[in-house]
Amino acid sequence: MLLREVEYARPASVAEALAILKQHDGARALAGGQTLINVMKARVASPDVLVDLNGLDDLKGIELGSDGTLTIGAMATYTDIAGSAEARARPILGEVCLTIADVQVRNRGTIGGNVCSNDPTNHLPPLLCAVGAEMTIASEDGERTVAAAEFFLGVYLTAVGPGELLTKLTIPAGKHDGFAAVTLGADGTCIANAAASLNGSLRVALGCVDAVPIVVQPASAAEDAVREAVRGAGLMPPSDVHASSEYRIHLAEVLAVRAARQAAERS
């Protein structure tokens, strides 16, 4: 429970936050804190400076463009997303957010934090890969965008580098999405999960099977095609107390089929 000493800043603007992050090597953004504070309790991570993003309203917006493109600020919480009329344009987002952990965690945890922490068991990294989100990353030097599929680099490692912030996520229009998971108890941590999106071609992203979501593109949503695509991915998931590698490979296939089916059946 007891954190190492840390300095704290609550910037008033994104620019200020970026400046602090740039000035201090050991600075880290603090979003919902639902992961970061816990790793600090365990003293697994000990940033020198916490840059609290909670005061930055610029990062909280959820907007629906005229073309159906959804833009979600990195600091939008799961509760914000689940309750947002705009976000309903892509219903799967709110639906999945509502199955993450519990009310308290959903009230604080943010979409930005979820993808930036990139815990392989998190719900949103595979989902955002499947729906083809783009991440906007800002630094004092300017902004860049990275496709979700390129955003995730390793466990707790993403394209957001030192001195940078994820500011928003952009999600194209679409409705034919699915998500399936086997979790530790109802609405619990994922043992394996899969997200699918069939808007044009089918894209399936598999979670919990590697350090980053594994994206496959089956030829169709037919069961055989999906299974074949998953098999073709040559998964080598880790074994842990909840699942053997073999079991995860199997689950990935079954869940991919289910997510794809849900995407296909969705009107």
Partner: peptide, 16 residues
Amino acid sequence: LLTPNFYDYHVPHALD
């Protein structure tokens, strides 16, 4: 120990 906390040592919750 692979289950040293309530994250990995899942006790029943309301929905269970």
